[in-house]
Each structure stands twice: as structure tokens, then as C-alpha cells.
């Protein structure tokens, strides 16, 4: 399998947020500001790559019966490491993300990739898969959180964009606004994806 294909599979074709719609709870909760969205995305990417690599390494020594607890231990270890380092070196971010950092353990994306990809593929492919999924997740969070921060606070990455006369719509900082924006983004993303897919089909048919 080509590595670039594995990578773009995670970013576009099977984007964890826009296509697979998994791990939504923390997505809706942390995307109130662009900074938080980016940090959460990077934390998840780090855990994804780490756990994918280790799961791929131990996939042949771990018996099938205990693979789930073994994977969970690996994932929980990486999440705890990320949590410790975040607390030590980026405490503001840690405070902003709060409970959602330890909750990465139960984020379905990570176990899903360990189970469906890393436990069946080699080290390099698993690392690239983790990176691709992580980048896809981070991009989705970044887009959503930039929109929410802009509409709900009038700023992006804490930089005020619109003057004081702009009155931000608080709803976009609250759960309903997150759902509405996410729904619209999923719609746009998939209509673009569908158009490209049908284009590809057309090209293939022409090639014949």
C-alpha cells in the first residue's frame, strides 16, 4: 500500500470528524477557541502516532484474547504522558482543555485505528496512518474552532478581528452553535468529496 494513500485516507477520504463522525464529544466541547482546537488536535495526533506505532510493534506477541486491554493500556500510557507534559510546559492550555485531555483515552478514533489498522499493518504504515488520521482530526477541529471563535468572540487565536461594534453571537460558543456549524461543515465537506468522487469515476470511464 502506498504511504501517501494511507496518509490522505485519514485526512480526506475517511476523515475522522467529517466522514466517520467519531469522537464527537470532545470535538464539540473544546472547539470554543482556535487555540484550544489546535492544542487538542495536536495532543490527539501525538497519542495516535504513539499508540499506532507501539500497537503495530507488539501486534505479533499479544494474543488475540487480550488485545483490547493491552491496546487500552498502551493508549492510556500515551495519554498520561501527554497530560503530564502539557501540565508541566503548557499549563494554560491544560487548564483550558481540562477533563478532555484524560478523556482522549476513551476517544474512539484511537482504539479504532489500533484495532482496525495498526494491529494488521507494519510499523511505518501504522505511523503514517496515525499521522494522517491525526492531521484530519486536527484540521477539522481547527476549522470548527476558528469559525466558532470568530462568530462567538469576534477573534481568531485570541487576536481581535472585528472592532468593538461587532456583537458576537454567544450561541456559537455553546453546544447548539457547535452542532449547527459542525452540521454545515460536514455538508460542505461531503458535497465537495462527492463531486470529486464522481469526477474520478467519469475520468476512469473516459480512460476506458
Amino acid at each position: 500500500m502506498k504511504l501517501s494513500k494511507v496518509f490522505f485516507n485519514g485526512v480526506v477520504k475517511e476523515n475522522p470528524i467529517f466522514v466517520q463522525l467519531i469522537g464527537m464529544c470532545s470535538v464539540l466541547a473544546v472547539t470554543t477557541a482556535a487555540k484550544n482546537g489546535l492544542a487538542m488536535g495536536l495532543a490527539v495526533t501525538g497519542v495516535l502516532i504513539g499508540s499506532n506505532v507501539v500497537v503495530s510493534l507488539i501486534r505479533k506477541v499479544v494474543p488475540n484474547k487480550i488485545r483490547i486491554p493491552a491496546f487500552i493500556v498502551v493508549i492510556a500510557t500515551f495519554v498520561t504522558i501527554v497530560e503530564m507534559f502539557m501540565k508541566a510546559y503548557a499549563q494554560d492550555l491544560y487548564n483550558a482543555l481540562g477533563i478532555f485531555i484524560p478523556l482522549i483515552v476513551v476517544n474512539c478514533i484511537i482504539l479504532a485505528r489500533a484495532e482496525s489498522f495498526a494491529s494488521k499493518h507494519g510499523l511505518l504504515a501504522s505511523a503514517v496512518d496515525g499521522l494522517g488520521m491525526g492531521v484530519g482530526y486536527t484540521l477539522a477541529l481547527l476549522i470548527l474552532s476558528i469559525l466558532r471563535e470568530f462568530l462567538g468572540s469576534g477573534s481568531i487565536f485570541d487576536i481581535q478581528i472585528l472592532g468593538p461594534s461587532f456583537e458576537p453571537a454567544i450561541i456559537f460558543l455553546m453546544p447548539p452553535g457547535a452542532f449547527i456549524l459542525l452540521g454545515i461543515l460536514i455538508g460542505i465537506f461531503n458535497s465537495i468529496r462527492n463531486k470529486q468522487a464522481s469526477k474520478e469515476v467519469l475520468q476512469k470511464e473516459e480512460a476506458r
Binding site: 493491552a70 498502551v74 504522558i81 501540565k87
Partner: peptide
């Protein structure tokens, strides 16, 4: 099975111990 799981958790625990010793003071 128990042994394998034990080894995995033991490795995980030692990795966490190391990273804790690195970060605890800073935290």
C-alpha cells in the same frame, strides 16, 4: 495471558514513572 498483560502493564508503569520524574518538579 496474565503474564503477557502483566509485562505490558509493567512496561507502561515504568515508562510513566520516568516521565513523571521528568515532569513532576516542573508541574
Amino acid at each position: 495471558l496474565a503474564l503477557i498483560l502483566f509485562i505490558i502493564t509493567a512496561v507502561a508503569a515504568s515508562v510513566l514513572a520516568i516521565s513523571n520524574s521528568v515532569t513532576s518538579e516542573r508541574i
